[in-house]
Design a protein around this nucleic acid. Structure first.
Lengths: 116, 116
DNA sequence: AATTATAGTATCATTTTGGTAATTAGGTTA
DNA sequence: TAACCTAATTACCAAAATGATACTATAATT
């Protein structure tokens, strides 16, 4: 994600979408909010459709963007805990809003919403 | 965007991000809300960083998802107007929320926010 | 007959995302 | 003491998405 770092965002909406617009970012932030602390493997089991490569990459982006904090325990086997930063937590109301809209739409389509 | 159509969304957050998570979708929806009606060329001039291919593709996705309505006038030169659907308009509060968060963050970084 | 205007396509290049196997290193087991 | 286990990643190659640029269509206008 070179360009994301280099290129100036066009406006606030563009800026916000760059920071949380990835395929998995919303869910990761939501899960971290629900559980407070999650280890790498826990996130991986939760995001059943993500590959380890993408999980690591996405977590790094969130960390670089200071939405997520990464705490490494220097143990073997490795232990790494992820938590939301204060800035990341500020996004919760809006993700929750989006989640409710999603549930509402899924119901409109006569399908059964699955909880996040 | 084949997989988007085929694969079941994991949960409401995933569902919502699939529907509005594209690189330009938020801004397009926001602009359509601000101006009510916009023609293709008007959108293209507003989204200075989009290519015609991506603009068409994104508008088609938004149309397929019933967030945007497309009205064709059979004239020469062509005239096509885009407007928000009711469902699309439901997303405005949340995009506005996101926009405010973005402005706030940009200010935190001591940069000048550009209006959308 | 060439020019203009608008909303796109077509084609090819680049970037991003995805899948799977390999790595690391200290502790436990055989 | 050597093979084995665990958890968090990296390495490598394939597929998909995005991007840049040129081209198209058509009626009215110059």
């Amino acid at each position: 994600m070179k360009k994301k770092d280099i290129q100036e965002p066009i406006c606030a909406v563009d800026y916000a979408f760059r920071r949380i617009g990835g395929k998995y970012k919303g869910r990761i932030i939501w899960y971290l909010y629900s559980k407070q602390i999650m280890r790498y493997g826990e996130l991986r089991r939760k995001l059943t459709d993500i590959t380890p490569k993408m999980l690591t990459q996405t977590l790094r982006e969130l960390e670089d963007d200071q939405l997520v904090h990464r705490k490494v325990y220097h143990e073997v086997p490795p232990k790494v805990e992820y938590t939301l930063t204060e800035t990341g937590a500020e996004l919760i109301p809006f993700i929750d809003h989006l989640r409710q809209w999603g549930d509402h739409q899924i119901e409109k389509e006569n399908r059964i919403p699955k909880s996040c």
